[in-house]
Design a binder for these strands. Structure first.
Lengths: 237, 237
DNA sequence: TTTGGATTGGACCGTCTAGTCCAAACGCTA
DNA sequence: TAGCGTTTGGACTAGACGGTCCAATCCAAA
C-alpha cells in the first residue's frame, strides 16, 4: 500500500485510437498507465489471468516489469484495474439503452427486439466477450471482479426492466401478472441463450446470431405476455 | 530394456483407458485407480484443475504420486479420466428422465415441471455443480472435456426434447409452430436461469430454488404455447 | 519359495512466475 | 544546468509444479 502511486486520474477516455506516436512528448504520467491497461486487456482476454505473467503484460505494453508494479502494486491490483476499466462504461451504456427502449411505443415487438439486441451486444459482443469469459472463469480467486460487470445483468438492471414491464402492463400494452418474474424470464431468454451460444463468452457472437436469438426470445415473451386483444404479429423478417 | 515403465504416456497413449490388462487379481487392480478417481473428483471440484497438483490428488487418494502417473500417464489424462467418469452417467440419466416425462399425459404443467426439475437437478444439483463449474472454468485448456458433459444439455438432448414437443403439438396438447426453437427456449428458461442462480455451477442449487425457477420457466412456456382452448391452469402452489 | 508386476518414497530436474532490489539512464521543470 | 521523480534492465530470491528415475518393497499367483 505504501507504494508511491501516480494519481488515479481514471479518465473516461476509452478512445479506440492507441499507440500514440509521441514517445515522451505529452505529459507521460498517465500514458504508461493507459498503455499497460490496454495491453493487459488484450493479453488477459486472450490468455486468461492466471496464465498471463506480469512480465508478459509489461512486454506487451512496451514497458518494464517494474513499471507495472510501480503503477498497480501487484498482479491482483493490475487485474482489478484492467477489469474495472473495461467494466466501467457498461452500466452507463445500459442506462442509455434502457433510456431509449421498453417505453410506451407503437411497435412493441420491434422495441423489445431492439432492446434485446443492444443488451446482448453490450455483454457478449466482440468487444467484451473475451474479457467476460476470463472474468467468469477466474472469478473464483477474485469474486469481487464480477460485481461491477454483473451489475448490468444482475439485480440492478433487472429492477429497471421490471419497472418498464410494469408500466407497459399498466398502460395495457402487456399483460404481465408478475413483472419481476417476467424480467427474470426475459433475461434467461436473452442472456442465458446468448451465453450458451457464445460458449460463455469465449467466442464473440455474430450479428446474425444475436438477431435470431433475440427474435426467438422476444417471440415467446410476447406470445406469453401480449394482451389477448393485441394481434402480437409474428416476426415478418 | 527398462522395467515396466508405462512408456511414453506422451503421444501414443491416446487410448482413452489403458484398460489395465488386469494381470493381477480382480480386486486390487482397479482399487487404486478408483480411489484416485474419487479423490480427484473431490479435490478437483474444490480447488480446480490448475490449482491442484498431481501430488495433492495422490495424497488425497492415499497413494503415491508415481502410482497416479502409472495409471493415467500425465495430469491431462488424470483430469480427462476424472471428468468422463463423472459425466458418464449423465447422458443415461437424461434418457431415463425423458423416458418418463414430456409424453402424452393428463396434467401437462405438472409433467413439464417434473421434467424441468429433474433436468436442472441433473446438471446443477449438489453432486455435479462443483465439477461442472470447474469444467466450465477451465475448459479453455481442454475444450473436449465439455463435450461429454455438455451432451446432455446440447444438441443431443435438445433434439429429443424438440421431438417430444412436436409430438405433443401433433396430438393437440401444445400449439408450437417451431419445435426446435421452443426446445431452445425451454433450455434457456430452465438451464440458463439455473446456471445464473447457481453462479454458473459454483454453488449447488437448493431444492426450493429449483422449484421456483422451474415453475417460472414452465409457466411462461405454457402461457406461450398452450393451445388456446386449453385452460392452462396457473400454478396452484 | 520364487517370480514379477504394482506400489512406494523420495530425490531430482527444468521451468515458470510473483515479487524485490538497485544502479544507471531519462526527461521534465525550476 | 541542477534537481527530482520516473523508468529501465537485469539480476536475484523463493516457491510451486509437472514429470522422471530408481531402488526398495509389497503381494498374490504359480
Amino acid at each position: 500500500m505504501g507504494r508511491r502511486r501516480v494519481a488515479q486520474a481514471k479518465g473516461s477516455d476509452t478512445s479506440p485510437t492507441q499507440l500514440r506516436a509521441n514517445v515522451h512528448a505529452s505529459h507521460g504520467v498517465t500514458e504508461k498507465r493507459v498503455r499497460i491497461l490496454q495491453a493487459g486487456m488484450r493479453v488477459f482476454a486472450r490468455n486468461g489471468f492466471q496464465r498471463t505473467s506480469v512480465e508478459t503484460v509489461a512486454i506487451a505494453a512496451g514497458v518494464s516489469k517494474q513499471t507495472v508494479y510501480n503503477h498497480f502494486g501487484d498482479k491482483k491490483g493490475l487485474i482489478t484495474a484492467v477489469v474495472s476499466t473495461a467494466a466501467d462504461p457498461l452500466a452507463e451504456e445500459f442506462d442509455t439503452i434502457l433510456g431509449s427502449t421498453l417505453a410506451d411505443c407503437t411497435d412493441l415487438r420491434a422495441n423489445f427486439e431492439d432492446f434485446g439486441r443492444r443488451w446482448v451486444r453490450l455483454l457478449l459482443g466482440p468487444d467484451t466477450s473475451a474479457l467476460r469469459w476470463v472474468m467468469l472463469a477466474e472469478s473464483e480467486s477474485q469474486p469481487e471482479l464480477l460485481a461491477a460487470w454483473g451489475e448490468v445483468s444482475q439485480e440492478g438492471a433487472l429492477r429497471q426492466i421490471a419497472g418498464r414491464i410494469e408500466r407497459l402492463t399498466q398502460i395495457g400494452q402487456l399483460d404481465v401478472p408478475d413483472a419481476w418474474r417476467a424480467a427474470r424470464q426475459l433475461r434467461a431468454l436473452l442472456l442465458g441463450e446468448a451465453e450458451r451460444v457464445s460458449a460463455f463468452g469465449r467466442v464473440a457472437l455474430r450479428e446474425e446470431e444475436i438477431h435470431e436469438l433475440v427474435a426467438s426470445g422476444i417471440d415467446i415473451f410476447l406470445r406469453a405476455y401480449a394482451p389477448a386483444g393485441k394481434t402480437n404479429p409474428p416476426h415478418p423478417q
